[in-house]
Simulated assay, not measured.
Amino acid sequence: MDLSDAYSISKHTPGFEAYPPLWAQKAEAFRNRLSETGHARLGLAYGDGTRQALDLFLPEGSPRGLVVFVHGGYWLAFDRSSWSHLAEGARARGSAVALPSYDLCPTVRITDITRQVAQAVTFAAREVPGPIRLTGHSAGGHLVARMAAPGILPDEIAARLAHILPISPLTDLAPLMQTAMNADLRIDAAEARAESPVHQAKPRVPVTIWVGANERPALLDQSERLANAWGCGHVVEPGKHHFDVIEGLEDPGGPMVARLLS
């Protein structure tokens, strides 16, 4: 059974074409503004590859903790440069916010990306003291959920986790084996099992799954399955779809940021 259409999100979202240039424009303006005030540390290498780097945005005064946002793109597209503006909500509330890039499939496997994100979280956590909160969108939601598994993060870093908020996450990779994307993702049965958060034990850290009510049915199902498997918080936000639901991270007074920092 070919599930390519079920997981084709941009095709079924009216006006998708306007989003990537808008994201890039807002992100660049945000980086420029914070660079001018000395609140941006850009291009910090956490690993050996050219994409293994992160941007760190600092609040006014001493950080009250760290937020890490991991971008999506089906592990195939984008980097941190399109999402800088999503740091504003948590940053305005006193958190430092790190946004990593990572290598993409088919150059690497999803398993490798999970390890890279763990490296990025560890690096950022050693730069910023205090509690750590993780959020990510789509494939990034998968990656931050994976950080809750035992042994992924060093024990001293895992002990600082205060909240994980996956947004429209991919939680069971097995269906993606039946999509055209798998020519590049190269997921096999063993990796699907090992890399699917729905097969992880319920984490000790608080988790909230957040998804837009107008999301694709396959992604609504993915979110619900993880919420049920982990018995965790599950917010279905009215009127939002896959590409505008993340806008909540920009608003320091909004419910998404409030839940993330809770």
Rank of each mutant, 00 (worst) to 15 (best):
P20N: 01
P20S: 00
P21L: 03
P21N: 03
L22N: 13
W23N: 02
A24D: 08
A24L: 11
A24I: 10
Q25H: 13
Q25D: 15
Q25T: 15
Q25I: 11
Q25P: 11
Q25N: 13
K26D: 13
K26F: 12
A27G: 02
E28T: 13
A29N: 12
A29E: 12
F30W: 04
N32Q: 15
N32V: 14
N32C: 12
N32P: 10
R33A: 15
R33F: 02
S35D: 05
T37K: 10
T37C: 10
G38P: 04
G38M: 08
G38V: 03
G38Y: 05
H39K: 15
A40L: 07
A40D: 09
R41V: 04
R41P: 07
L42H: 07
L44D: 02
L44V: 07
A45R: 03
Y46C: 04
Y46Q: 05
Y46G: 01
Y46V: 01
Y46K: 08
D48V: 14
T50W: 13
T50A: 14
T50M: 12
A53M: 09
D55H: 10
L56F: 11
F57Y: 11
L58W: 07
L58Q: 05
P59H: 06
P59E: 06
G61E: 04
G61T: 07
G61A: 03
S62K: 10
S62H: 10
S62A: 15
P63I: 03
P63E: 01
R64G: 12
G65F: 02
G65I: 05
L66G: 02
L66D: 09
L66F: 01
L66Y: 07
L66S: 05
V67E: 00
V67H: 05
V68M: 06
V68S: 05
V68C: 00
F69S: 00
